[in-house]
């Protein structure tokens, strides 16, 4: 990784890098599960994100022939970095195939590799994920690997050459937040590549908590799209991400069992 550290415009933080890509916003937002495309567009805007994830699927030819709009009518590729994911893949072959197709979209070589084990938990299959990542790294992709919160797997993925490891906080869409912060902290200590928390975030405090652990960024989708007011939640997530990041950089006080008074003893 380059040692060049670029300050953000407000001077409060630095940009972060994944591979050759550099970003200011530390919130990455998914485009799934929204009520309408307009809501998707407005939520992304409110979140301040720069990276948005998409899935790859067949063009709906019937809808297209009826003149129906699609996601790409609402996302400006000049404004956002689009991160294709391999969602829906349950084996390495499918994930590799999706990434090779994604490359021909000519939006860059950044891919989120997600190879799931089964439908109920949507937990990543560690072996298929690792093997897919090895092939994709070899083919020149900038791989952001979705993984469990297992420090051993995170290290193996980093050693395989992925550009970022993305441990889950908890299962996709579960809203359970960061279930194993100790593991995330271990991953952070050991990882030679950026660490992002991806999946399971439920509300703004989960994002702040993840950022306070020291992760580079947070990727989320359901927490915004499924909120009662997605636009309001997108705003909340933006500020929570910034707050958590600044708190991390500020260096918190230690946790103590007993009190330390904030005011001097009474002297009259």
């Amino acid at each position: 990784m380059s040692d060049t550290i670029t300050q953000t415009a407000d001077g409060l933080d630095t940009k972060w890098k994944v591979g050759k890509y550099e970003f200011t916003s530390r919130l990455l937002v998914g485009t799934g599960k929204y009520a309408t495309f307009e809501q998707t567009r407005d939520a992304l805007e409110a979140s301040g994100c720069e990276v948005v994830t998409v899935a790859l699927r067949r063009v709906d030819l019937e809808a297209h022939s009826r003149g129906e709009k699609n996601l790409l009518d609402f996302i400006d590729p000049a404004r956002y970095t689009i991160l294709p994911n391999t969602a829906g893949c349950f084996n390495k072959e499918d994930a590799i195939r999706i990434c090779r197709i994604a490359r021909e979209l000519e939006i860059g070589d950044l891919v989120k590799v997600e190879v799931l084990s089964e439908q109920r938990t949507l937990l990543p299959d560690p072996i298929e994920t690792l093997e897919a990542c090895k092939v994709l790294v070899n083919e020149g992709f900038t791989v952001m690997a979705y993984t469990s919160d297992d420090p051993v797997m995170a290290r193996k993925l980093a050693d395989a050459g992925v550009a970022a490891v993305m441990p889950l906080g908890s299962p996709i869409g579960s809203g359970l937040g960061i279930l194993n912060p100790n593991n995330i902290a271990i991953i952070l200590e050991e990882s030679p590549v950026p660490v992002l928390v991806d999946a399971g975030v439920g509300t703004a405090s989960d994002v702040a908590f993840a950022m306070e652990l020291g992760v580079e960024a947070v990727l989320l989708n359901t927490a915004i799209a499924g909120a009662q007011d997605p636009i309001a939640m997108a705003h909340a997530m933006k500020y929570a991400c910034q707050a958590g990041r600044l708190a991390f950089k500020a260096g918190r006080i230690p946790r103590k069992r007993y009190a330390t008074a904030s005011s001097p003893a009474l002297d009259f």
Partner: peptide, 10 residues
């Protein structure tokens, strides 16, 4: 032939 595009996803 498969004609593939980008759709909503997380």
């Amino acid at each position: 032939i498969e004609i593939i595009t980008m759709v909503g996803g997380g």
